[in-house]
Amino acid sequence: MAGKIKINTERCKGCGLCITVCPKNGIVLSKHPNKHGYFPAQANNHDCNGCAACATICPDVVIEVSREVNIVEVKEIKKQNCGIKTKINY
């Protein structure tokens, strides 16, 4: 699957919500703080499918998503990924 996300790490607040919804476990928090002192999200993009679940839940709108297919398929994937259970333990 050819998807890709770009995170604006200087604006990310490290809330971790994107991590909880990514079906591919493709996002982690960085060990290095940004200039505001937050530990920002980092994407590995290994098997990102471009579902945009991460961008949909990001309160700071710092994720941009691109994908290599047509919009119909994206909608299908989004549908499949909606309502995913939180995977984080706290």
């Binding site: 961008a55 949909t56 309160p59 998503v65 994908r67």
Partner: peptide, 29 residues
């Protein structure tokens, strides 16, 4: 690659003062 999600023009390209994980950012978007 086609961009399938990006910031919409009516949402200013700026950092908010909200706490991490606050729902106001989502509602604004």
């Amino acid at each position: 690659m086609k961009t399938v999600f990006k910031r919409t023009p009516s949402l200013k390209d700026t950092q908010t003062h909200y706490c991490p994980g606050c729902g106001h950012g989502l509602a604004h978007r």
